[in-house]
Amino acid sequence: MSFRIGYRTLKTAVGAGLAVAIAQGLHLDFYGSAAIITILCISVTRRDSLKVSWARVVSCLIGMMISGVLFEVIGYHPWTLTLIMIVFIPIVVRLRMNAGIATSSVIILHLYTVGNMSLALIFNELLIIVIGVGVALLMNLYMPNSDQALRMYHKEIEEHFKTILHELSVYLRYGESDWDGKEIPETIELLQQGKNLALKNIHNHILRYDDQYYYYFKMREKQFEIIERLMPFVSQIHQTVSQSETVADFMDELSQSVSPANRVPYFLERIRLMRAGFEEMPLPKTREEFEVRSSLVYILHELEEYLHIKDRLWNHADKKKL
């Protein structure tokens, strides 16, 4: 079993030590709590860290105000602490700052332990909060670059799409195939992993809410849903007709053109011309031929939607200047 230290573990360890060093260097009471706040505020992404840090700061201020008033009015008793929590927790939950409950509890316990409110104590606690949160935000400035991994997912997904479309064209052309279909579950997994990483990449940018890769993976996800819908119709075609060869050629060409380049208008025109050619052909002579041609018309309809999805995303991406 290999032992590996991740970047988040390293950041947490360094941040905890740095927070304690600063708080101890300033001769603050309860300086160890600065490390606890730092550990709690380090998150997976920069945006999450900022959100959590804000929640903890506000919650601590609310907790200090409530506990300061009740301790001074009722006294420093265990049941006063119980009353403070009964009042404090619903307020924080209502403000949707649940993440700050643990940190605030530490600060409230400091006030209870000292047993006396003073400006020096309040200043001490505020400094501990600022040091803990500040060091966590500093540590979260570093996030590993995910561009290489995103490019890998991008490339793998396109290769899988090419294989799937090519194998479907083979089945249309010959009515059989020895393809094992392993690319289907692999593509599902790649799409999910790529989309999750792209979303994480978005959350590592404070002011950016759009991401080219995220839109790409969403586009391929929707296109893959169409491929899954048309696969049963392809598998039902056991008899080849002249139209089967035409659609197979189209799908094979489409498989070779899976790329970020926008060739949608060209392929849409190809579909229009194929439909026009099909309409000029003689009517089917047998029921089997009718069913095959009906399936082929449906496959063309789905492939048209497959292309429109990319076209819509391309226009959206252009507006976003991706």
Rank of each mutant, 00 (worst) to 15 (best):
T45W: 02
T45H: 03
R46Y: 06
R46C: 06
R46Q: 15
R46W: 04
R47W: 00
R47L: 03
R47F: 01
R47D: 00
R47A: 02
R47G: 00
R47M: 01
D48E: 14
D48I: 09
S49Y: 02
S49A: 13
S49T: 12
L50R: 14
L50H: 11
K51I: 03
V52I: 14
V52P: 02
V52C: 08
V52A: 11
S53D: 09
S53Y: 10
S53L: 05
W54H: 13
A55C: 08
A55L: 05
R56Y: 11
R56T: 08
V57Q: 10
V57G: 10
V57L: 13
S59Y: 11
S59G: 11
C60N: 14
C60K: 06
L61N: 08
L61Y: 05
I62S: 04
M64T: 04
M64H: 09
M64R: 04
M64F: 12
M65I: 15
I66R: 00
I66W: 00
I66A: 01
S67G: 09
S67R: 07
G68V: 00
V69H: 04
V69D: 02
V69M: 08
V69R: 01
L70R: 04
L70Y: 07
F71I: 02
F71H: 10
E72D: 12
V73T: 15
V73N: 09
I74A: 13
I74W: 13
G75D: 10
G75S: 13
Y76V: 06
Y76F: 15
Y76W: 15
H77R: 14
H77T: 13
P78K: 06
T80R: 04
T80H: 08
T80A: 08
T80Y: 05
L81Q: 11
L81D: 02
L81F: 10
L81A: 09
T82W: 08
L83V: 10
L83S: 05
L83W: 01
L83A: 14
I84W: 02
M85R: 07
M85F: 15
M85T: 13
M85I: 15
M85A: 15
I86C: 11
I86P: 02
I86S: 10
V87E: 07
V87T: 01
V87Q: 03
V87P: 01
F88I: 04
F88D: 00
F88R: 01
I89A: 08
I89L: 07
P90L: 09
P90W: 14
P90I: 06
P90N: 12
I91C: 08
I91Y: 10
V92I: 15
V92T: 08
V92P: 00
V93S: 10
V93D: 11
V93H: 14
R94W: 15
R94E: 08
R94Y: 15
L95W: 10
R96E: 15
R96F: 12
R96N: 14
M97Q: 01
M97H: 04
M97K: 05
N98T: 11
N98K: 09
N98D: 14
N98E: 14
